[in-house]
Each structure stands twice: as C-alpha cells, then as structure tokens.
C-alpha cells in the first residue's frame, strides 16, 4: 500500500522563480486498489506519480510504499508513460524481456514469460518488430507488457492512453481492466478524462489547480467486471461522471 504524507514539490525553473507543483498532499492507497488522479493540467498529478516512482525527490514530506520510505526507483513500482518510453534499439520481445533479464531471470525463462505477455496484450507475430514499426496503441501495449513482466506490486500509469485516438483508447481501457481484474495490482492512474477515471477506478482523486492539493476523493462503487456498453447507460455511472465534471469545473 502507498502512504503519501505531507507531500510538497516545488521546481525552480530559474533562480528568481519558484513553481509549487504539489502543496502538502496526503493520501493513502490500499493494496489492490485502482485509484485515478484527476485535476486541471499543471496541477502536479504527473509529478505526484514521479515522486511515488522515486524518479523525482519530494521537496517536503514523504512517500511510503509498504512501510518503506521511497528513496529511488525500484521494481516494486512499474511505470507506464504516455510517451511509451520503449527502448527503440530493442525489438518488441527484447523490450518485454529487458526488465526480467535485468532482474536476473535466465534468458530462456525470460523469453518464455515475455512471449506469454506479448500474447496477453494481443501482439503475437510482432515479436521481432522494432518500436518504430508499430502504431501508438501497439507501442503502449508493449510498454504495458514490459512493465507487467517484472511483476511490480504497484502500477504507476501516467496518462497512458492520452496520446491515442478514441477508438484505440477504449480498446486499451478494456484490455487494461481485463488484465487488472485478473491479479488486482495496486494502480495509480493519472488521466485528464473523467469517463476514463470512472470507468476504470475504485476511487477517483481530484486535485486542485496548482499547487495540487487534495480536493475530493470519490469512491466509485460500480460493480465489476465492468462493461463499457452497460456502464454508459447506467444512471449511477452517469451521475458520477457529472458529479466529478462539476467538481473539476469549480475553481480552486
């Protein structure tokens, strides 16, 4: 589980300026919980994810993951970025295997596992393709498989579907839910889409305009497994979306 305590993060773009991205944010995320973070752009929601990932140090406060203070990146927290961040010199198979080999798994075993994950994200037949030869949706599937490969307990997803077209996006949301419903990892999911947040999450966190502080935490008690077609006509889903949209519209 993730415990965020009094987290403040400021950047100094120049000596005279100081930009406060996150202001005294406290939050806890339970084991196996799928939590989305919403907020106006520039509210520091991605920064929050980077601090939990250990990629960026906090200015004040701390993040605890399973009782231990985060001091740097680690394989217990697997990131998935909007920019995919695949290793361009590696093939699909090479990318998915990378973390496993890095963790000391023997090559044949790593390859076997990577192939299974490539199948899980429906990319059989593309094992020997380079990232440059893939579409955006395929790249993100590879990135998800690559992160799932080393079995992080927590997934940190930074607007993972933000760069994709609407059709690809809903397809990947469904696939992500299917994968998640299987092993229920803890997920911290940053997005700017209210529908996406409500569709996927157990709980939606809304941050205030910069500096990002906790504005609201809304439980999404819609039944699982969720089907998009059913949810869209479900009045509870509609009410939640409208409620959160309204929250986002009010200033502060």
């Amino acid at each position: 589980m993730i415990l965020i305590e009094g987290l403040t993060k400021s950047f100094e773009p120049s000596r005279r300026q100081r930009h406060l991205a996150l202001g005294d944010l406290s939050l806890s995320v339970g084991e196996g919980e799928f939590v989305s973070i919403l907020g106006p752009s520039g509210c520091g929601k991605s920064t929050l994810l980077y601090v939990v990932g250990g990629f960026v140090p906090p200015s004040q406060g701390q993040v605890l993951v399973n009782g231990k203070v985060v001091t740097g990146p680690g394989p217990d927290r697997g990131p998935v970025f909007q920019e995919f961040a695949l290793f361009p010199w590696k093939t699909v198979l090479g990318n998915v295997m990378y973390g496993l080999v890095e963790q000391g798994v023997a090559k044949p075993r790593a390859e076997q596992k990577a192939r299974a994950l490539i199948a899980l994200v429906h990319l059989e037949g593309y094992e020997d393709f380079y990232p440059k030869q893939l579409s955006g949706g395929m790249k993100q599937r590879v990135a998800i498989a690559r992160t799932l490969a080393y079995e992080p307990k927590i997934l940190l997803m930074d607007e993972p579907f933000g760069a994709l077209d609407a059709h690809t996006r809903t397809g990947l949301q469904r696939e992500l839910l299917e994968i998640w419903e299987r092993d229920r990892k803890t997920v911290l999911f940053v997005t700017h889409s209210v529908e996406e947040a409500v569709f996927l999450s157990d709980r939606v966190i809304v941050l205030t305009r910069s500096p990002g502080r906790l504005k609201a935490s809304i439980a999404i008690d819609l039944p699982r497994p969720r089907r998009r077609a059913e949810l869209l006509v479900d009045p509870r889903y509609q009410t939640l979306v409208v409620e959160i949209e309204r929250l986002m519209d009010t200033q502060g």
């Binding site: 980077y50 990932g53 680690g74 990131p79 920019e83 961040a85 290793f87 990378y98 890095e102 690559r146």
Partner: peptide, 13 residues
Amino acid sequence: EEKLIWSAAAMGM
C-alpha cells in the same frame, strides 16, 4: 528521453 532512463531505473538498473 528522461523516461527511457526512468524505465530502466524502475527495472533495477
């Protein structure tokens, strides 16, 4: 890209 390095760091590199 910074995130390439972050991805590797998360894998334990």
